[in-house]
């Protein structure tokens, strides 16, 4: 077995997950090749870190922290409006706005009729046109 082939199988050899004949071949190679043996030992020490690190000591106040975290967030949840209100509220505002615009148009709509315009002019002019109410001749005579 070549060194390159062994390098690809060392992790499985260390786990003991290779088929029996391959385990023997790798083992035989490691007994002869010091470079591969050195790498196998190095890899074994590195992977052993996982065993050492597994199940870190847990904070004894962990539950208290979780509970506090939960209580801090509950008011936020309560502040959230129900889905129905969240949908209905903007819809209601939109309807009020449209109604306002529509009634604005209705109120502001001037009837476009010539006779009406003239009549309304006649109603307004006497107050504005002083000449009509007080002719210049009578003014000069006075």
């Amino acid at each position: 077995m070549k060194c390159k082939t062994v390098h690809k199988k060392i992790i499985f050899y260390l786990e003991g997950s290779l088929p029996e004949n391959e385990m023997k071949k790798v083992q035989g190679h490691l007994q002869e090749c010091s470079a591969c043996l050195s790498f196998a030992k190095d890899l074994e020490s590195t992977l052993a870190i996982i065993e050492k690190e597994r199940y870190p000591e847990v904070n004894p106040y962990f539950y208290t922290r979780v509970r506090a975290g939960l209580e801090n967030r509950e008011p936020e949840q309560l502040q959230k409006k129900p889905a129905l209100i969240r949908i209905l509220q903007p819809a209601l505002f939109a309807m009020i706005l449209l109604l306002g615009i529509y009634s604005g148009f209705k109120i502001g709509k001037v009837p476009f009729n010539d006779s009406d315009v003239q009549a309304s002019e006649m109603e307004i002019v006497p107050y504005l046109n002083e000449m009509a109410s007080e002719p210049i001749e009578s003014f000069l005579m006075e």
Binding site: F62, G69, L70, R73
Partner: peptide, 10 residues
């Protein structure tokens, strides 16, 4: 990891 675990339980 502890902070994340707290988030997980919440």
């Amino acid at each position: 990891a502890e902070d994340l675990a707290q988030e997980v339980f919440i």
